[in-house]
């Protein structure tokens, strides 16, 4: 499973970014291969409109199957995510990526 996190930094110790569309980074962890990638999203962050769908598209292109974030994506982004078949878990804010992953594996995050 490829799992994506909205984050403020590039590694497991980074803090989660509760925002979806304007998140600073996307951190992606591939559970099978153990591979970790970090996508810089700051360019999208400064977009006037449509940051949500754009970030969602990035996520889909990276092949993520699960998204872990804070507030959850808004209308337009949600429809892109749905079309891409990504499952969204929300409520992961004010914690590190590591803690968010633990919360997810222990079933503490709610599915959107």
């Amino acid at each position: 499973m490829k799992i994506a996190f909205t984050t403020k930094g590039k590694d497991w110790d980074a803090e989660m970014d509760p925002r979806f569309g304007r998140t600073e980074y996307l951190f992606i962890y591939d559970e099978q291969s153990g591979e970790e990638t970090s996508l810089d999203n700051r360019e999208v962050q400064s977009e006037a409109h449509g940051a949500g769908p754009k970030t969602a598209q990035k996520l889909a292109e990276a092949g993520a199957q699960v998204l872990i974030t804070g507030n959850g994506p808004g209308g337009n982004a949600a429809s892109v995510i749905q079309a891409a078949g990504i499952t969204v878990y929300i409520g992961a804010s004010s914690m590190s990526v590591k803690e968010a992953y633990q919360a997810y594996t222990s079933g503490k995050l709610s599915k959107q």
């Binding site: 409109h49 769908p53 891409a84």
Partner: peptide, 8 residues
């Protein structure tokens, strides 16, 4: 304006 996106 990011109003059109290609997705898959």
């Amino acid at each position: 304006f990011n109003a059109v996106l290609k997705l898959g």
